[in-house]
Nucleic acid binder design. Structure first.
Ligand SMILES: Nc1ccn([C@H]2C[C@H](O)[C@@H](COP(=O)(O)OP(=O)(O)OP(=O)(O)O)O2)c(=O)n1
Ligand SMILES: [Mg+2]
Ligand SMILES: [Mg+2]
Length: 1107
DNA sequence: ATCCTCCCCTAC
DNA sequence: TAAGGTAGGGGAGGAT
């Protein structure tokens, strides 16, 4: 206990997960138990049959009874495999139990046991011996049952109750490497890493390359590797039950979490961080530093303070990350895997939609990446070896890695199971430290680690990318420039899909581009923090410090796979189970909390069945939270609150595709106790109606109504124009009158409507249960739809809330609940005069299509409005009956902003293409616009279009800006986050980071178009493609749609370019693999042209070099 | 100003 | 078949 490192002897796994994975420990409900009994009986019968038929192989009769009385359960990945061991047991009269039952199993066979499981076995009063599989094979070879002592798993050698062996001392020093011996059958000392110090380049980089492998083409090697992989997968299959989705019963959740890789890595982080945090705070002063100090003392006295107070002391940071971690662990189990493309995935099917978790570098050469469907992976590399997950071994390796890191310095900040920061300032040559650490890791685990070194965390992180695979790289502060400048922004940490596209839209694609902007400009456009961080990173600066993780501030559990409910009761049942799961986690973390958040995924209306098996598909996300009066970690509390929120949302249970519970305001945070609910944004009850997915039709296109009205002749473009003209002066002071740019809705003061509005103050009062609940605002005072009750008290007058379809909810007939944004007032102003008529029309229309029942009808029996959580109450009438907005009306809005300044702010750094938008140009009729084309446009252009038509998600216009106050461009930036009517960047919209459901199949590039079946596209992903339609294939445009079944909506544009005879060539643009926003200049140009937009909107033709 | 809620985004 | 979790950062905007 004197060495602080001992405190890192942590259990890297939660008890829950260890138990989950330890089959015998899992508690099962009645129905599952029955199933298990039946299944066990079947397995035993099958086993007996196999044993009988295999008996011929064993000539010696005594051999056939050699293992009589011995009953093994095999845990985890072993060599020989489960199946082989099972076979051997059958041949020699032993028993093989697929599931672990203490009273039936005499020996647990295991090659490797993670710490948490060790703990479980240690806790058993009369533990079942845990021995390595060699005990079986050696016993058979010796034709007698050998003593188990020499085969006890090294982790358990000192455990009470396990067989002990004096002679074990001799091998004890090998103990730590024993599992490594097994990994490749070699003495670990033979596993020499190339001498990194000699391989170092001028810049300190090294790249350890394997000798030219003779594998790959090696058929025998490949055959063996495939066999091993098959055996490993089969070992897992044996344990698989028929439980696959929420309908299959309560055991689904356990099965799911036990198998989920993301759950594994997510929980690993929480666990190690919690342990570290507790160590950090509980460290007695007596813990004296070894080298260079306890983590706490280093952090408290040294670097943390130093970094903040003592000025810019030169630091040396190492970022270390295992190479293709899961894949490397898999490959380390046998030398046959070396040099062969390998991936870790549940599925091995050529059509499978299982996701690749990790692919080794050989596989990456084929373009295989994490998150890819296995079908994609196998198509790219038919010879891919697929290995199953081995979570226990990841634990073990991870633990070994962390031990090595902590032997180097206590100043280790965990990032994940395969990755950590080290502050090695003042510890000597960092290159040598990194090399030593990597060599030690290799030696101990048989897995390669790469290391990046730098003067701060950023540069160390970036260096790791250069170091991989199996190398190290030092980026010194003095020579960071060349590495940094040419880097795409997306390589910067924190810049993911969304931000990188926003940046691209701003004309920023490299770090060099980023450097051309001032910090202020970036902050203005991206938000204060994001902008500053990005600027810092672009200049190689990063003042983050290596430190132990802070206390966890939330604990959650969610499940977005396999969720299919038949009815509300099933949903609530599952939610209760989830509450149990959450509370187990809370309890094991020793915390309670006050705020419970329910998260739901609801299938988007029209969303197709997801391509991913049991996946959630394209969804609307929503969440509601309650803050309760006291801290809790009880399942009952959580389940109750969760259920009420679920009911308040009155979501069709059959449409639920994901569900989660989260606890915040934990009692570990002193501020939680005093936190009051009821302040802050008003909460909402009912969920917005589903938004639409799929090709736009007149009915479901956000502009459909307008288009329809145009056709009906009820849309008066002049109104829009006139409104614009009126608004042209763009008064700076629009906080009080005039039209507000407002994301979700407008308030209109209209005297003739004023009387219609009601109001209700809604005081928060504690409910008997201690929950802070809200009173029912009371029955609506009006039958008129679209009249909101409101507690909005800014203005003395009543207001009519006029809403346009929320960007997030761009359906037409029943406009949504406002999404987090309260009402704004607009009033007076010239436009108001023109409005009532129009508004009235809209109201009529709204009445006509009103479909939402009163919320009280939707409440379950016995559930009163008072029961609704978190001031969540009956949606206001307005919420249920929002009035569709007038686009003409809004046409003014966008023109209304600060005339030039805001324009500049709105379009601060956009490419010229996006900037050009002249209000004087006539807009083409909306009906001429092709929604699918619009959807394909770069964000900036889309934004412009939305502005031009007065649509969109509140882009660019601060709603409550005081006269003269600077417009915070972050608010403009935020526009990109809110879904415009066309702009569905986020919220599971099309412009979300494309996942499987957004992707098109690869298009084969082939010559000989005429021979291709109809609908086969030719060309590269983002180029125009030629579609050759053979005779009899019908209309090519139709063929395009049908040629890509279910994917037609991904077609961005198309145009017939040639017709000859029966053959028609069509240019098409397709969205493939996330290339949507990476359209080439020419394509964008063409898209714009095809939309019949004003010429000035297409400056790209004048400046093709721009993008 | 600061807190609160409801998101979205990112990383592993 | 297949197991698309988890936690924190951060922004917008309303309430206080
Ligand atoms: N989308 C992801 C990302 C990661 N992981 C798991 C598998 C990885 O092996 C492990 C570590 O993640 P890394 O990002 O470090 O990826 P790898 O270690 O596999 O590869 P690299 O060599 O790039 O670090 O986490 C996963 O299951 N799914
Ligand atoms: Mg890694
Ligand atoms: Mg990693």
């Amino acid at each position: 206990m004197t060495d602080p490192r001992d405190r890192y002897n942590v259990r890297l796994e939660t008890d829950e997960d260890a138990q989950r994975r330890s089959a015998g420990s899992v508690h099962h409900g009645g129905s599952f138990k029955k199933y298990m009994e039946g299944k066990n009986r079947k397995l035993r019968e099958q086993f007996a049959t196999e044993a009988r038929s295999g008996a011929d192989e064993v000539g010696d009769k005594s051999s056939r009874t050699l293992l009589r009385g011995i009953s093994i359960h095999v845990n985890g990945f072993t060599k020989p495999s489960h199946q082989e061991l099972r076979h051997l047991m059958g041949l020699h009269g032993g028993r093989f139990e697929v599931y672990y039952y203490r009273d039936r199993v005499t020996h647990i066979i295991c090659s490797n046991l993670p710490a948490a499981k060790v703990k479980i076995f240690e806790r058993e009063r009369n533990p079942t011996p845990v021995v390595r599989p060699e005990w079986i094979t050696d016993s058979i070879a010796a034709k007698r049952i050998l003593p188990t002592e020499a085969y006890v798993l090294w982790q358990l050698r000192d455990a009470p109750g396990q067989p002990t062996l004096k002679a074990f001392q001799a091998s004890a020093r090998h103990g730590a490497h024993q599992h490594v011996d097994r990994l490749d059958g070699k003495d670990p000392s033979h596993r020499m890493e190339p001498d990194v110090s000699e391989a170092m380049g001028r810049d300190g980089s090294t790249r350890d390359t394997e000798g030219p492998g003779n594998e790959g083409a090696d058929d025998a090697g490949m055959a063996r590797a495939r066999r091993l992989a098959a055996a490993a997968r089969a070992a897992c299959d044996v344990l698989r039950g028929p439980v696959r989705c929420s309908r299959d019963g309560p055991e689904f959740m356990d099965t799911y979490y036990r198998s989920s890789r993301l759950h594994f890595i997510g929980r690993w982080k929480a666990r190690i961080e919690a342990l570290q945090a507790s160590m950090g705070s509980a460290a007695p002063a007596a813990m004296q530093p070894s080298v260079p100090g306890t983590l706490e003392s280093v952090l408290l006295q040294g670097r943390v303070k130093g970094a903040q107070q003592a000025g810019p002391k030169e630091r040396t940071i190492i970022h270390l990350d295992m190479d293709c971690f899961f894949a490397a662990v898999a490959a380390s189990s046998d030398p046959a895997f070396k040099g062969k493309p390998l991936a870790v995935c549940h599925s091995n099917s050529a059509k499978g939609t299982g996701e690749v978790s990790s692919a080794n570098y050989e596989a990456r050469a084929f373009g295989i990446k994490a998150d890819m469907f296995i079908a994609d992976a196998k198509r790219r590399c038919p010879d891919l070896i697929v290995m199953p997950y081995e979570f226990d071994r990841y634990e073990t390796v991870s633990e070994a890695v962390y031990r090595i890191l902590l032997a180097t310095t206590a100043c280790v900040q965990p990032i994940s199971c395969d990755e950590a920061w080290l502050d090695v300032t003042g510890l000597g040559d960092p290159l040598k430290i990194a090399a030593d650490v990597r060599a030690a890791i290799w030696q101990a685990t048989g897995c390669a680690a790469s290391a990046g070194i730098g003067p701060n965390m950023l540069l160390a992180r970036l260096a790791t990318r250069k170091a991989k695979p199996n190398g190290q790289f030092y980026i010194k502060g003095s020579d960071m420039e060349p590495h940094l400048v040419l880097m795409p922004v997306s390589d910067l940490p924190g810049v993911g899909w969304s931000l990188s596209h926003r940046l691209t839209d701003m004309g920023i694609s490299t770090v060099a581009d980023l450097r051309e902007r001032s910090s202020a400009a970036l902050q203005r456009d991206l938000g204060a923090k994001t902008g500053q961080t990005l600027w810092n990173f672009a200049h190689g600066r990063d003042d983050r410090v290596v430190e132990p993780p802070k206390q966890r501030r939330s604990v959650g559990a969610e499940c977005n796979w396999g969720i299919r409910f038949r009815d509300q009761s099933e949903a609530e049942e599952f939610l209760t189970g989830l509450a149990g799961e959450l509370c187990t986690r809370l309890t094991s973390a020793g915390v309670q909390g006050r705020t419970i958040t329910l998260k739901l995924k609801r299938r988007k209306e029209n969303a197709p069945e997801p391509p991913k098996f049991m996946g959630h598909g394209i969804c609307d996300n929503m969440s509601r939270s309650v803050t309760v009066a006291r801290f809790t970690s009880s399942q009952e509390d959580v389940a109750n609150e969760g259920r009420q929120m679920l009911r308040a949302l009155h979501v069709d249970p059959t449409q639920i595709r994901g569900i989660g519970l989260n606890m915040t305001k934990l009692n570990t945070d002193p501020t939680s106790a005093s936190a009051k609910p009821g302040t802050g944004a008003p909460s909402r009850a009912a969920a917005p109606p589903p938004t639409l997915f799929g090709p736009r039709t007149m009915d479901n296109h956000p502009w459909g109504r307008i288009i329809q009205r145009e056709m009906d002749g009820t849309f008066d473009p002049a109104l829009g124009k006139e409104a614009m003209a009126i608004a042209e002066p763009a008064p700076q002071d629009n906080s009080d009158h005039g039209l507000q740019a407002e994301p979700d809705h407008f308030w209109l003061e209209a005297p003739e409507l004023r009387d219609l509005a009601g109001t209700a103050a809604i005081p928060s009062t504690p409910s008997p249960s201690g929950r802070v609940a809200a009173q029912d605002p009371g029955p609506p005072s009006l039958t008129g739809e679209g009249i909101s009750t409101s507690s909005h008290g800014v203005n003395e007058h009543m207001s009519l809330q006029v809403r346009h379809a929320s960007p997030r909810d761009n359906h037409l007939p029943c406009a949504p609940v406002a999404s987090g944004m309260g009402p704004q007032n607009i009033s007076r102003g010239a436009a108001a005069e023109a409005l009532p008529t129009y508004v009235a029309q809209q109201m009529d229309q709204a009445k006509g299509v009103q479909e939402c029942p009163p919320v009280s009808d939707a409440l379950p029996k016995g559930c009163t409005l008072e029961d609704l959580p978190n001031r969540a109450r009956s949606p206001t009438l307005a919420q249920r009956s929002a009035i569709p907005h007038s686009h003409a009306f809004q046409g003014r809005r966008m023109q209304h902003g600060p005339a030039s300044k805001a324009d500049a702010l709105q379009q601060p750094d956009l490419p010229a293409a996006a900037r050009v938008m002249r209000p004087t140009e006539a807009l083409p009729p909306v009906s001429q616009l092709d929604a699918s084309v619009l959807d394909a446009l770069p964000l900036a252009m889309k934004r412009e279009l939305e502005h031009a038509y007065g649509l969109g998600g509140g882009n660019g216009q601060p709603s409550k800006r005081r006269k003269g106050a600077p417009v915070k461009a972050a608010q403009y930036g935020a526009a990109t986050k809110k879904q415009g009517l066309l702009l569905q960047r986020s919220g599971s919209g099309f412009f979300q980071r494309p996942r499987a459901e957004h992707q098109l199949p690869d298009i084969t590039i082939q010559d000989g178009a005429a021979e291709q079946p109809a609908g086969l596209l030719q060309g590269s992903a983002t180029d125009t493609c030629l579609l050759a339609v053979p005779e009899g294939a019908g209309d090519p445009e139709h063929a395009l749609e049908t040629g890509l079944p279910g994917q037609a909506h991904s077609l961005l544009g198309r145009k017939a370019v040639a017709c000859s005879g029966r053959e028609k060539q069509v240019e098409v643009w397709t969205a493939i693999k996330g290339a949507i926003t990476r359209l080439r200049q020419q394509q964008v140009l063409f898209l714009l042209r095809s939309m019949h937009l004003p010429a000035s909107w297409m400056p790209l033709s004048h400046d093709n070099a721009q993008v």
